[in-house]
Design a protein around this nucleic acid. Sequence first.
DNA 1: AGTAAATCGGATCTATTAATCCGATTTAAT
DNA 2: ATTAAATCGGATTAATAGATCCGATTTACT
Lengths: 145, 145
Amino acid sequence: MTLSKACEHGIRASLYIAQQSVLIERASLKDIALEIDAPEAFTAKILQQLVRQGIISSIQGPKGGFSMSKKAIKELKLIQIIHAIDGDTFENKCVLGLKLCSEISPCPVHDQFKHIKKDYLKMLQKTTIHTMISSLNEGISCLKL
Amino acid sequence: MTLSKACEHGIRASLYIAQQSVLIERASLKDIALEIDAPEAFTAKILQQLVRQGIISSIQGPKGGFSMSKKAIKELKLIQIIHAIDGDTFENKCVLGLKLCSEISPCPVHDQFKHIKKDYLKMLQKTTIHTMISSLNEGISCLKL
DNA sequence: AGTAAATCGGATCTATTAATCCGATTTAAT
DNA sequence: ATTAAATCGGATTAATAGATCCGATTTACT
């Protein structure tokens, strides 16, 4: 249920790229790493993953960089970025670490936890890039510190 | 929001110890590790932590082992075991990894996530050992597999 | 064509978590 | 007293996640 550091950086990077894609064409790795306060080389690795998964697109050479399509900004859900980086591990993860925890063979907190997990998943499935960058653009939320 | 492996093992061990404390006096490390399907040496380390924190008590020598008081079984909350092993890190942890994420300076998903976090915390604060071992004793839930 | 600015991609290093090892200590039973 | 069964505690090892390095590739600009 906790995201990996790679995924945290990946989401923040995606948001910054989306924001810049609306304003100017693209964002460079250097700018991205700076604006999300993440190590440049590590960010590069994560962005490569997102490019391969089709979440963002990249252009090499001078004036190159990363961008996100208008369609993606409007339609892409938070859960899709998470899946692209961390996979779907956390969806079936039992709080107490049981391999087969389910309705049939539940752990002692399965029932209490399932509602929370459902709400969390629902939130990730409905939150779009667009939703997230609105609060950024309005200066309400931020991506570093 | 995800527990460490040590904490997962620690909670499962606590539940087994509580269960055995009601039936027979104590449980040995060997039995505990077997019943919760966790490595013995690692479990030993975790139990030592729980003893030092006063969550469980131990007796050395033959016929020794670990036990939990009736009072603890009735009153101890899930969150207290988590704090004893993982600390309170996850309470103030931002989903996107921001160091200072708060109402004043929120990340782009702070508002959506805060409700989920609140519910989760509330659950951990009200769930007692007693609550958890009832479902175990009734054969509804389990501690391994 | 040449150069410099960018991403790409594989290998490597580092830090943290997970797990093990083993000798020291305690104590019940013979 | 001796032995054996248990926990204790410090040191070490293994596995994974986090991060870096550096040469290869692409491409805009002169």
